[in-house]
């Protein structure tokens, strides 16, 4: 598990924007696998970056790409979509549909000036609490590295 337990950034002065950058990350997670894994990670007290906030969906297959675009335009620096492992979907094959949609969306995002790394799709099964915590922390670190999204300068706006 990669831990980012001690985070110096909050203590840094607001004057240096790079040091104080706290990304806002939205995670659309499926009720059956990743949300359960998040519960498990919580029960096991696995420290996670507070930047990631979950939105519970019943299945990743119901995550309309426009939810992701909406999140990115509303100020989220990145979006995580996470569901059951391939073959494990509670609804037979919703995660495959999500996988196709995310692949296409990742191709479209750069044309609007959004780095495709700001969207991530992962599979975290219900029993993988440690994997969930690691995913959250890894992704938060990646986005911190990437810096804030600048929706104000996006071409489509």
């Amino acid at each position: 598990m990669e831990e980012i337990s001690v985070r110096q950034e909050t203590a840094a002065p607001l004057g240096s924007p790079e040091a104080s950058f706290e990304p806002a990350i939205v995670a659309f997670v499926c009720n059956w696998c990743t949300y359960t894994a998040a519960d498990l990670a919580g029960t096991a007290r696995m420290v996670q970056s507070p930047n990631v906030r979950l939105i519970r969906m019943m299945c990743t297959g119901m995550v309309d790409p426009k939810y992701i675009i909406k999140a990115l335009l509303s100020g989220a620096d990145a979006v995580l979509v996470s569901g059951c492992h391939p073959g494990d979907c509670h609804y037979i094959n919703g995660n495959y549909k999500a996988r196709r949609r995310m692949k296409l969306l990742k191709e479209i995002l750069p044309r609007f000036g959004i780095d495709e790394r700001r969207l991530k799709l992962t599979w975290v099964g219900a029993s993988e609490g440690n994997e969930f915590a690691a995913t959250v922390n890894r992704f938060a670190a990646e986005i911190k590295e990437l810096g804030p999204i600048d929706t104000r300068r996006l071409p489509l706006l």
């Binding site: 909050t10 607001l14 924007p17 104080s20 950058f21 706290e22 806002a24 939205v26 507070p50 906030r53 939105i55 939810y67 909406k70 999140a71 335009l73 509303s74 100020g75 989220a76 804030p148 600048d150 929706t151 104000r152 706006l157």
Partner: peptide, 30 residues
């Protein structure tokens, strides 16, 4: 419902944590 949840999640941002998002969340966005 999802849009409302997103908006609640991202705006208004708690000032202690995310000064930048609060600024980006002006009416010129979205």
């Amino acid at each position: 419902q999802i849009f409302a949840e997103l908006e609640g999640l991202l705006r208004p941002a708690p000032p202690a944590l995310e000064p930048r998002v609060a600024e980006a969340a002006g009416p010129d966005v979205a």
